[in-house]
Design a protein around this nucleic acid. Structure first.
Lengths: 139, 139
DNA sequence: TTATTATTGAAAACCATTTTCAATAAGTAT
DNA sequence: ATACTTATTGAAAATGGTTTTCAATAATAA
């Protein structure tokens, strides 16, 4: 995805393209780590001085509705957002710098079948997230 | 674990055993679903009328410190707590009634090795959580 | 029983998020 | 270009969950 693709999505859904929204989109789309609303605010303010925190909240809300971003759950808090992965992907987070990477290829079929048999549950979804150190932070 | 084992743990760590704490412990230890502070408050109040919400927060804090309870992350919020699993266990949650079950036996070694090779990350931890319908809610 | 001090509940403070509202500016029609 | 409609904006106020403050209370040790 790209900044222009996000703006197009917003436009196609009847939302107007404003300076504030461009600043938020450019900030979040380019970030490789999850950002909290305040972090987005501070960064977006450098691109569009007059933006208000309220508008950041409102824009993040819309981006989440359009599935362009997703909330990231971490031990320290669950208020951060990152550009959404495509299809069935999971997050891998660096515990030191916060750098995020998506991965796919998890096959939990055998596990879920076994759990279904053992517990009687019907399993519909799973959340998987890996934590570690990115290449840079290992060094 | 049992209520008395939790109380013993609290006592062994220098905490006094009070009516308010007993009420919180009895509530959380017996619950099969994750409870938010307010829910614990409402339930504990039936056992100990005079308890304050503040004491619920403070007691949950201590129980988490002692690893007797753990925070449960869900799409709708991450403020709920449940009796902690033992060893390497993950949660399976009913999307309808909230019923929780622990399971173990997940083997992600092959997956993490592959991801490590592909991404250059060193993987230290993983979060895995399953969602579905419990036996009762399927019917 | 008495003394010590952790614990308590109520009220106030705090902080992230949401709502309200009048002014502004994006998109559309003229 | 120009005017018009109305979504969007930022500031301020409101909200709601969580934390802090503080004097009174009650659990434990002496």
């Amino acid at each position: 995805m790209s900044v222009s693709a996000w703006l197009e999505q917003l436009h196609d859904h009847g939302y107007r393209l404003t300076g504030a929204r461009r600043a938020v989109v450019e900030t979040v789309e380019k970030s490789t780590r999850a950002l909290t609303p305040i972090e987005v605010y501070d960064m977006a303010r450098k691109k569009y001085r007059a933006i208000g925190l309220v508008t950041v909240y409102r824009t993040l809300e819309k981006l989440e509705e359009l599935h362009l971003i997703q909330r990231v759950h971490q031990p320290m808090g669950c208020q951060a957002f990152i550009a959404a992965g495509v299809g069935h992907q999971h997050l891998l987070l660096c515990q030191n710098c916060g750098q995020a990477a998506f991965f796919d290829g998890d096959d939990l079929d055998a596990l879920t079948k076994a759990i279904e048999k053992k517990t009687g549950y019907q399993i519909n979804e799973h959340w998987l997230q890996l934590f570690g150190l990115c290449a840079d932070c290992r060094a």
